[in-house]
């Protein structure tokens, strides 16, 4: 009973292709692996929205900035992209901390429009600086053998690099979730997210907490940057598209819900790859389509009601 139904659904999903179970499963797995990376893109956005009620329009540009910084480290040392994280992540933390102290703390907690305008401006500034510094050409991080290696699995081939990035993404989600739900600092973060005014009354230093938070957010961005740059070529103008994928993951999962963001990322990744199976150019469009349909069905996001 369930099997014929599933076959019909699968045929609908892949109308231009002869139905092939292997292709279906392979696409699904690759979509999930890509989605885990999108989820990692979305994590920082989810955190800043959930905790500081602030949307960072420059989020995608920070992902691209991280990829360029990693490429600078790779070229000027003999570290590989993954090893470049050792230098990149502390640097990203400092950048995030400084941004919050110097810029964002002036506008958070007031009307929602000010952070939007500020980070919109920042997005343009970062894109221009990247273009000045690195020209408009695309580049990518050298993934070496990793890019070519695959695991054979029942006739399918799954890339090692996507597997590694998905594992890292899951580990980061697990760690950040634990930090927020199982630590004293996490309790302060949740308190500020619940009620900033009252958190101040019990002595929480909200502005300092925000500075650490944005530092941490840029650390997650740095990790996403390197995994992204190893898999896809990037240019100074790649930021906005990264922002859109992140945004879709966050909104799909329900605002302020970390694991929701994770699932949201998976859905976008899977949709894109099935779209690309129908027509190679249709991948991102298919992701947007599924996002819109899901949003019409559940405007509050798929997993609203969970804890942040």
């Amino acid at each position: 009973m369930a099997r014929p139904l599933m076959l019909t659904i699968m045929r609908l999903l892949t109308p231009t292709l002869e139905f092939d179970m292997l292709v279906f499963i392979e696409t699904l797995i690759n979509g999930l692996l890509l989605g885990a990376l999108y989820a990692l893109f979305g994590m920082g956005l989810s955190l800043s929205l959930g905790v500081m009620r602030m949307i960072n329009i420059a989020h995608g540009d920070f992902i691209v900035l991280g990829a360029y910084l990693s490429s600078v480290i790779v070229m000027s040392t003999d570290l590989g992209p993954l090893a470049s994280l050792l230098l990149l992540l502390p640097l990203m933390f400092v950048i995030g901390w400084l941004l919050q102290v110097v810029l964002f703390n002036r506008v958070v907690g007031r009307d929602p429009l000010s952070p939007l305008l500020l980070t919109f401006g920042l997005s343009i500034v970062i894109q221009n600086l990247l273009q000045e510094g690195f020209s408009a050409d695309t580049r990518s991080l050298p993934a070496g053998d990793l890019a070519l290696q695959g695991v054979e699995l029942g006739g399918m081939s799954i890339g090692v690099l996507p597997l590694i990035s998905a594992a890292i993404s899951i580990a980061v989600f697990w760690f950040i979730n634990r930090l927020i739900h199982r630590s004293p600092v996490g309790a302060a973060v949740r308190a500020v997210a619940d009620d900033q005014e009252t958190a101040r009354l019990v002595g929480v230093n909200d502005k300092r907490l925000f500075a650490y938070m944005t530092g941490l957010i840029l650390v997650t961005v740095g990790i996403a940057s390197v995994l992204y740059g190893m898999r896809t070529p990037f240019s100074p103008a790649s930021g906005p598209e990264r922002l859109i994928f992140s945004f879709e993951a966050v909104v799909l999962g329900g605002l302020g819900n970390l694991w929701g963001t994770f699932i949201g990322g998976l859905i976008i990744g899977v949709s894109q790859l099935f779209g690309a199976r129908i027509d190679t150019g249709l991948g991102p469009f298919f992701g947007h389509l599924v996002f819109l349909l899901a949003l019409i069905a559940r405007p509050q996001g798929l997993f609203k009601g969970g804890k942040s």
């Binding site: 004293p184 309790a187 949740r190 619940d194 009252t198 002595g203």
Partner: peptide, 13 residues
């Protein structure tokens, strides 16, 4: 704070 347990509410302060 609704996202905090009773103990967390008190210990935070």
């Amino acid at each position: 704070f609704p996202s905090l347990t009773v103990r967390e509410n008190i210990e935070l302060a």
